[in-house]
Deep mutational scan, measured.
Amino acid sequence: LVRYRTISKIPQITLNFVDLKGDPFLASPTSDREIIAPKIKERTHNVTEKVTQVLSLGADVLPEYKLQAPRIHRWTILHYSPFKAVWDWLILLLVIYTAVFTPYSAAFLLKETEEGPPATECGYACQPLAVVDLIVDIMFIVDILINFRTTYVNANEEVVSHPGRIAVHYFKGWFLIDMVAAIPFDLLIFGSGSEELIGLLKTARLLRLVRVARKLDRYSEYGAAVLFLLMCTFALIAHWLACIWYAIGNMEQPHMDSRIGWLHNLGDQIGKPYNSSGLGGPSIKDKYVTALYFTFSSLTSVGFGNVSPNTNSEKIFSICVMLIGSLMYASIFGNVSAIIQRLYSGTARYHTQMLRVREFIRFHQIPNPLRQRLEEYFQHAWSYTNGIDMNAVLKGFPECLQADICLHLNRSLLQHCKPFRGATKGCLRALAMKFKTTHAPPGDTLVHAGDLLTALYFISRGSIEILRGDVVVAILGKNDIFGEPLNLYARPGKSNGDVRALTYCDLHKIHR
């Protein structure tokens, strides 16, 4: 019993810090008490220290592992850092350059016999395009090294910054494609005289377009951006097909006994025919423009016929181009109408809503002055909100995010209106959640004399007048207030005048 009563005193000691020596009952000389009392004092002292730490809000209350900052290894790049964003855009520009100039170089340097010394005699450094290609190869190699040090988000939505895990993730992902696209074939085969082989191998750079397509997928929600990307894709495919079309004609031209190829026909049409040795002929500019003209006309199913396939190889390629053109029509131009419709969806919704308003007016036989006010209010409210119901949009977000959005939407009023000066951010967040926005066209009466005042109004834009009878008592403008002081009276009061809008007004109100 003594032991039980001794232990039962522990909660009292913990909360009230009572010393055991003052209790005459606990001072009985028993061996059990002498053993338990020192333990009680020690526990009391420890609990006292913990309570003191909690009340003082000291940093040592938290466990040590929670006080440590997340460790980022040296030379690790955050995937959302500004440097990584700028670097990704730079790589994107280099990939676009590669997609345009690599097929052009591979096709127009394929057994090209233009006048001038061969590239091997001039030297590697004197070729501007080769120098640019070398810079692109170096940048792609540097990009691989950067990807080995860039964080990523795993399946659990955690940012991984450990170098080993980053390397394994990159090896399992895009490393092989990036490595093949970054191989400097110019340096590996330079001086061997195989410019045709170098041009063909350099087309491996186009593998990076797969990554670019995935990154550009984030802009699919913007109709104008999608339309622009589709047109660029169409032009890029036409450019690639033009390079292939020229390569076919250029390879067949020296081996044909009869002059029936499209390059021969082009030379005869523009007065620059090929001679018996295969030299001469149109310039590279004429060849490229004509090839691009043929691919565009074939892809769009126009086909004027002034550039036509004559050999079997050219006919087979033309059939493939027609098939590609039909697929592009289905996948690209078939979506253009939907994209344009999405661009004008706001206008369509406006006309639909206006039609419903006019049908309501016609069905209920609203008189002319009231009908005009109804239409003007709808037009003004639509121009202010673009038909978007803010309350319906915010309803799907958590309250903390709703408060931040409301604070942002009402920031101008909260910053410049005098009653809100000096208020804490928590108070402003709470008030912003209570605001209701209303609009009024010129001549609209917001409050009639004798109406119950259940709200306090803040003028965000425009001006109003307060009338008693036919006498203008006051004219209020931006950041002015009218209405009933909230919670100042037990019952809502009545208006002693009319409140009429002089201009288009936007008002925020808080109800009782």
Rank of each mutant, 00 (worst) to 15 (best):
T150H: 01
L227Y: 03
C126T: 01
P367R: 08
G278D: 01
A348E: 08
M251N: 08
S297M: 03
L370N: 01
A106K: 01
I361T: 03
Y104N: 01
Q341W: 06
C243L: 01
N391E: 08
I361S: 06
L188A: 13
K285Y: 14
K111V: 04
N410D: 01
A392Y: 07
I166P: 01
Y288N: 01
T295N: 01
I189W: 13
I144D: 01
P117M: 15
A440F: 10
T445L: 12
T300G: 04
P184M: 01
K418E: 12
H439C: 07
A381H: 15
I189Y: 11
S81P: 01
Y65R: 10
V226W: 09
F296R: 01
R358D: 01
S81H: 05
Y344C: 10
D178G: 01
I198Y: 10
K111P: 14
M256Y: 04
A330Y: 04
L197N: 03
D257K: 13
S81Y: 01
R358E: 03
I332H: 03
N306V: 01
A235Q: 01
I144S: 01
A430S: 11
E314H: 01
G116T: 14
T203Q: 01
G271D: 01
I324E: 01
I72F: 12
S412L: 06
Q402G: 02
S220A: 11
P118F: 04
F296T: 05
F360H: 01
A155H: 13
S192P: 12
A167F: 07
N275I: 01
L145T: 04
N386F: 06
Y65N: 05
G173V: 01
L94P: 07
H364M: 03
L394T: 03
C417A: 09
L90M: 10
T102Q: 01
I189Q: 11
A381D: 14
E115G: 14
I405Q: 01
K285D: 01
G164A: 13
I388A: 04
L67D: 04
S331M: 10
I198N: 09
N156M: 13
A204I: 05
L229T: 05
N310C: 01
T300L: 14
I166K: 01
T233S: 14
R71K: 15
K418R: 07
E196G: 15
L92C: 05
L428K: 15
L176N: 01
K285C: 08
L201R: 01
I138D: 03
S383V: 04
E195W: 14
K215R: 14
V131Y: 04
M322F: 01
I284R: 05
A449F: 11
G271N: 03
L266D: 01
G193P: 12
M251G: 01
A107N: 01
V321Q: 06
N335F: 04
M390K: 06
V168T: 09
L129E: 05
A130S: 03
Q127R: 05
